[in-house]
Design a binder for these strands. Structure first.
Lengths: 210, 210
DNA sequence: CCGTGGCGAGAACGATCGTTCTCTGCCTGG
DNA sequence: CCAGGCAGAGAACGATCGTTCTCGCCACGG
């Protein structure tokens, strides 16, 4: 799995160039669509030679998969960071939608990269389809864990996931980020319906339904 | 906007060939992605000459837009058909998810064609982006009308739309159609939270929350 | 100081695709 | 029966793209 087990103390230059390539490719693929971006453009954006690009990734598909892998890790990091420091399990669940809202307001936001890649290449590339499936399934598992901590079951988690997914595509296509807040309000209703009235001491805004 | 206001009694042959082309292109574009299908393959599937294809559609983009337009009409027809004959406004709202479930179980189902097209071409083709926006907005308007008939407001409608959108991408990527039923259950909770307990005489299954 | 080997820059190659053009056969109007 | 034009089949063309090859430069080791 790991690239080359170099024994150098600092970051291996090979890993550095890999990350630069992946970051450049991600920005281009995500912003314009994968097939709309040529390898030469990736090379230029990464500031690397074409030969080096092809020694790091044997083909475009492997680069795409590496990009999706990196994007998946960033998504997971962002999710856990959003939940960090929040005491109430119920608010950790809702923090998912706060994280979405911050993402949607980023002006480079163009929907979920996995949904986009799946629609564009899922039928052609089994690897891309599998990456999308794994990403979404991992999100399901994450939300299910949060839901369980809050006392909810898998059904509640699945429904909260639907809201998050719908918010992503709606925000992407409409161009307006308020889908995140709408999803949060709906999630609050679902959570309260499943778990009962909100817990007592919750400060912030967790208590107001509407 | 409408094609040609022909005064002939039966379908004009030009319209017939157009429809054949659009139907063939839709199946190919939707099943494999737009850029993965060449114009020559569309020509073969439609059983038409390349010249005729290009007299009907000046370029691939116009064909794509025509496909999206036809798909939008089919979506609207399916939606209204799903609501037809249902007396209770609340059940008409939930019928959206029954319609989704039937769609998801179709073995050619591969997600929402507009979301897929938007992800693939939305950044490159303003026409495609606009078509996706219009389609989603029209769905919002439709659900908002149903919600109002049931006594709900625009917020309820927006939240129900999020569930429907999320169900589409989730069913597409996971490959399992049960997202529709999950969305329906969540919608039921949201509707009852917004409108109060279910109305009395409703037969069927509208009364059981869980 | 000289050979060598690796690396970057970019040309080159083969394939695909969108679009147009050519050729040939057929059908129609007189 | 004949001329004309229209449509279908498919070749052709230009552009793009993924991938590979070549050339020249630079650093480094003996």
């Amino acid at each position: 799995m790991t690239t080359t087990g170099t024994t150098t103390g600092t970051v291996a230059p090979a890993d550095d160039v890999r990350q630069r390539i992946v970051a450049a490719a991600d920005a281009l693929f995500y912003g314009r669509g994968i097939q709309a971006v040529g390898m030469d453009e990736v090379r230029a954006a990464a500031g690397v030679s074409l030969k080096r690009l092809y020694t790091q990734f044997p083909g475009k598909e492997q680069l795409v998969l590496a990009v999706l892998d990196a994007r998946h890790r960033q998504w997971q990091d962002g999710l856990t960071a959003a939940a960090a420091g929040i005491a109430a399990p119920r608010d950790r669940l809702l923090a998912v939608y706060d994280f979405l809202e911050r993402w949607f307001t980023d002006d480079t936001f163009r929907g979920c990269g996995f949904i986009n890649a799946f629609g564009e290449l899922g039928a052609t590339s089994p690897g891309v389809a599998q990456a999308a499936r794994a990403h979404k399934e991992s999100f399901q598992v994450y939300v299910a864990a949060l839901a369980e901590e809050a006392g909810g079951d898998a059904d509640l988690a699945a429904q909260l996931v639907l809201l998050a997914e719908g918010a992503q595509t709606t925000a992407a296509i409409s161009g307006r980020p308020d889908a995140a807040r709408q999803a949060r309000r709906a999630a609050q209703v679902l959570v309260e319906a499943a778990l009962g009235a909100p817990t007592g001491p919750g400060g912030a805004d967790g208590a107001r339904v509407r």
